[in-house]
């Protein structure tokens, strides 16, 4: 039962990621694309947690945590770049 539920969840998450990709391609403005990328990394994190559940392995936790950290830093850096035209002040 659980593995079926995980497979269904993976399918739903893939649909969500596809919608994010559509928004990323369509834009229309830069903040929209950054928002799409931000959502995309959170979805990737969810997919990795699901994969860890599917394979019953605890090792995927570190990968998910690192994606969370790097994704946040990336979003902040690009948003700052839009605000100031410069990241390091």
């Amino acid at each position: 039962m659980l593995s079926n539920a995980i497979l269904i969840s993976l399918a739903i998450m893939s649909a969500a990621a596809a919608l994010n990709m559509l928004r990323l391609l369509k834009g229309p403005d830069l903040p929209d694309r950054i928002l799409a990328l931000d959502t995309l990394y959170i979805n990737a994190l969810a997919i990795i947690i699901l994969l860890g559940l599917y394979l019953a392995s605890d090792l995927f936790f570190e990968a998910a945590l690192i994606i969370a950290v790097m994704g946040f830093v990336g979003t902040v850096a690009v948003a700052k770049h839009l605000l100031r035209g410069d990241i390091i002040e």
Binding site: L2, A5, L10, N20, A36, T39
Partner: peptide, 21 residues
């Protein structure tokens, strides 16, 4: 319970992406 939680979680993520779209 675990199956219900992960299904609910992914449905919420999908709704977020629908909103984004």
């Amino acid at each position: 319970l675990v199956a219900a939680l992960i299904l609910a979680g992914s449905v919420f993520a999908l709704i977020g992406s629908i909103g984004l779209w």
